[in-house]
Structures are given as C-alpha cells and as structure tokens.
C-alpha cells in the first residue's frame, strides 16, 4: 500500500532523527500514507507504517487516533475543516460553517453523496487574525472567507 515514492519520503523524515529513533518519523509517515490513500488511513496503511518503522502496530494506531488531522474513515476528495472557535466565531466562523452546510447539503462529519466533499469542524488553527478560516485537505489554509470566496473555492474544487 505504501508506494516506493512514499517510502522514499519517509526515509527523508527518518534521516532527521538520531540513529535508532525511527519512531520519531511516525507522524510524517502517517501523513505521507494518508496523502496517498485518498486522505484517510485504512488499517493496512497503519500496519505498513508500523512494519516500515519497526514499531508495534498498536503504537502507530495510538498516534493515528490521538492527533485529529488523521482520518480513520474514508473522507471525500476535498475535506474542508472550518474553525468555529471563539476568535473565529466573533468574526463569522459559525456563519461560514452554516453557509457551507447549506451549500453542500451536509452537516459536520458528513460527506456529499458524490464523494467530493467532507465537512469538519476544527479547533484553533492558529490563524485567528485571518478569521473566518478554513483548511482544505489539512494543508491549504484559506483566510478571510466570505460567501463569495466559498462559492469560488467550491467551484474550483468541484472540477478537481
């Protein structure tokens, strides 16, 4: 399940840590595995990461379940995580979440029937000055979201 390219990327991460500390690369390895498995971590991916890093499977599973940007169930092609924490909420975070729910016709932790979009509620992303803020597929931060910008974003993602 882990491609040769993914293993190469993981090797680069392992090299950052002292000899004998491969386990330190587990967060990156899970991230890399998730990126090439449609945005989530099937059990086999966790097992492969464990084997590759010579860790007990349960230790990798613990990490995968502890950090909330890892997904243990399938998600849509585009995962959108909206921050609704207090600083964002004061500048429209909740309104943005409502707008997305209405546009996509789904609630939090749901995926559109065509499998394109999953909506999540997120905790503080450390970008409160850019409120309302959302993340696309964990890595792309979108700042100062308005209904117009959301329309543009969704249209652009729709075609991808």
């Amino acid at each position: 399940m882990l491609s040769a390219e993914a293993k190469q990327k993981i090797d680069r991460e392992i090299a950052k840590y002292p000899a004998g500390q491969k386990q330190s690369a587990v967060m990156s390895a899970l991230r890399i595995a998730q990126e090439e498995n449609a945005g989530w971590l099937p059990k086999e991916a966790i097992s492969e990461v464990a084997a590759y890093l010579e860790m007990p499977e349960v230790a990798v599973y613990e990490v995968a379940t502890f950090y909330n940007m890892y997904e243990l169930k399938p998600v849509g092609r585009h995962k959108i995580t909206v921050c609704t924490n207090l600083p964002c909420a004061l500048s429209g975070g909740v309104h943005v979440a409502e707008y997305l729910q209405q546009k996509l016709g789904i609630g939090f932790n749901e995926t559109t029937p065509d499998g394109k979009f999953t909506l999540k509620e997120g905790e503080c992303m450390g970008a409160c000055g850019d409120a309302p803020v959302l993340l696309h597929n964990n890595h792309k931060m979108c700042s100062w979201m308005t209904p117009e910008k959301i329309d543009r974003l969704l249209a652009e993602l729709e075609s991808k």
Binding site: K16, Y17, S24, M27, S28, L30, R31, F66, Y67, N68, M69, Y70, E123, C124, N138
Partner: peptide
C-alpha cells in the same frame, strides 16, 4: 536543526 510537524493536538 530540523523541522517536525504536529497534526492536530493542542
């Protein structure tokens, strides 16, 4: 010196 990323845990 190296960079290490978190993945969603305050």
């Amino acid at each position: 010196l190296f960079a290490h990323h978190g993945y969603g845990a305050y």
